[in-house]
């Protein structure tokens, strides 16, 4: 992965943000991480032309104001934004959530483990997958 491409983390839980950031640093991911605490903020961030388009979005589902599914519905309306790969990181094991998010084109669906080390493993897997994966040029 190009270490200059930014990562957008949409997450309202402070500890979860800390956990993810710490996991990044533990496995030496140096890409810039931008955090938005809900869907509304994330949309504003993405629609602001001054901000760089992120290479990947890590998305929580349960958030105030605009939840993850609503956020996915919004970016699906924008031909530019819908190209960004989204990985869901959530506590929800609901079948319904899985079906709906995959329908909205997410690249993956991960359950947040309680155990930190397992969390690190998940982040490592996402990173690995993303490194191997070919992504469309964001200028397209």
């Amino acid at each position: 992965m190009n270490s200059t491409i930014s990562i957008l983390l949409v997450e309202d839980d402070q500890v979860d943000v800390m956990t993810i950031k710490r996991a990044f640093s533990d496995i030496h991911i140096t890409n810039p991480v931008n955090v938005c605490e809900n869907g509304v903020k994330a949309l504003e961030y993405l629609q602001n032309p001054e901000n760089e388009i992120p290479g990947i979005i890590l998305l929580d589902l349960n958030m105030p104001k605009m939840n993850g599914i609503e956020f996915l519905q919004e970016i699906n309306k924008d031909s530019r934004l819908k190209l960004i790969p989204v990985v869901v990181l959530t506590t929800s094991k609901e079948e319904q959530d899985k079906i709906e998010t995959y329908k909205l084109g997410v690249a993956g669906y991960m359950i947040k483990p309680v155990d930190y080390l397992q969390f690190v493993e998940i982040i490592r897997t996402i990173h690995l997958y993303w490194t191997i994966c070919e992504l469309p040029n964001s200028d397209n």
Binding site: D13, V15, N62, T91, P113, D115
Partner: peptide, 14 residues
């Protein structure tokens, strides 16, 4: 699942 587990996870990790 969400509201009970989120703080639990925080305790665990912290």
């Amino acid at each position: 699942s969400h509201d009970l587990k989120a703080p639990l996870r925080a305790i665990s990790q912290l």
